[in-house]
C-alpha cells in the first residue's frame, strides 16, 4: 500500500525534483502543501508517513516544536540552507537544499527504512485492540472520541489506526466501514 508523503517547500523546481527522487525510492502518494494552516489541517485528517518541510515555512509557524509532536509516527525531514539548524532533536533529519542526489537518496532511505521494510511483509491479522479501534472508526467516531471510549491516549488510537490501515490495505473511513461490516465486526444498522 502506498505511502503518503507531504512536501512543503515553496520552490517549484525543488519540490518537483524531490518528489521525483522519492518516487524512485518508494511508491508514494505525494501531496504538496505550502500553507502552514493547510498543512496542519491535512496532518490532522490523514495518515502521513513523512513530511519534508522547508525551514522558512517551519519558522513561520507559531510553535514549530509542537508541529513535530503532532503525529508520533510521522517522520519529519527539514529542508534547510543552513548547517546549524535549531531544534535538531525534535525532527528526524535535515536535508541540505544544495545536497546532491548521492547524498539525498541514502538519507531518505535511512529515515524511511522502517517504513520501507514494513510494507508487504505484514500479515493482515488484526490484534484485538486494532479490531476494537476499527469498530469505533467504522461507527463514525473521531480519534478523540475513540480515545475517550477505550480509555487510551489519542496517540495510541492514531498508532492503531495506522497499523490496521497498513495491514488491511484500506485507507478511507468508508472503506474501513465496509470491511468491518463485511467481516461482521459491526452490524449494518450501526453505520452512522
Amino acid at each position: 500500500m502506498p505511502f503518503s508523503v507531504i512536501i512543503s517547500e515553496p520552490s517549484y523546481l525543488m519540490k518537483r525534483g524531490l518528489a521525483a527522487l522519492i518516487g524512485d525510492i518508494l511508491h508514494a502518494e505525494i501531496i504538496f502543501l505550502d500553507d502552514t494552516h493547510e498543512l496542519n489541517h491535512y496532518l490532522d485528517m490523514n495518515m502521513v508517513q513523512a513530511v519534508f518541510i522547508n525551514e522558512q515555512i517551519l519558522n513561520e509557524m507559531q510553535d514549530p516544536e509542537l508541529f513535530f509532536q503532532l503525529k508520533a509516527d510521522t517522520r519529519y525531514i527539514v529542508l534547510s540552507d543552513t548547517p546549524n539548524i535549531r531544534n535538531k532533536r525534535k525532527f528526524d533529519a535535515v536535508l541540505n537544499r544544495n545536497a546532491q542526489k548521492d547524498d539525498i537518496v541514502p538519507l531518505i532511505e535511512k529515515v524511511l527504512k522502517n517504513e520501507i521494510n514494513a510494507t508487504g511483509h505484514e500479515e493482515a491479522i488484526l490484534s484485538s485492540r486494532e479490531q476494537e479501534v476499527l469498530k469505533q472508526v467504522a461507527m463514525g467516531y473521531t480519534n478523540q472520541e475513540i480515545a475517550d471510549r477505550l480509555h487510551i491516549s489519542k496517540h495510541t488510537v492514531i498508532s492503531h489506526r495506522k497499523n490496521l490501515t497498513s495491514k488491511l490495505g484500506i485507507k478511507t473511513v468508508s472503506g474501513l466501514t465496509l470491511y468491518a461490516v463485511l467481516n461482521d465486526l459491526i452490524p449494518k444498522d450501526q453505520i452512522k
Binding site: 502518494e29 501531496i31 504538496f32 502543501l33 500553507d35 494552516h37 493547510e38 489541517h41 491535512y42 485528517m45 490523514n46 488491511l168 490495505g169 484500506i170 485507507k171 478511507t172 468508508s174 472503506g175 465496509l178 470491511y179 463485511l182
Partner: peptide, 21 residues
C-alpha cells in the same frame, strides 16, 4: 487550496479501497 487537494486525494483513495476490498 486545502479542501481542493484533500478532495482530490479522497476520490482516488476510495477507488483504491474498493479495488482492494
Amino acid at each position: 487550496y486545502a479542501s481542493h487537494s484533500i478532495e482530490h486525494e479522497s476520490v482516488i483513495t476510495k477507488l483504491l479501497d474498493l479495488k482492494n476490498i
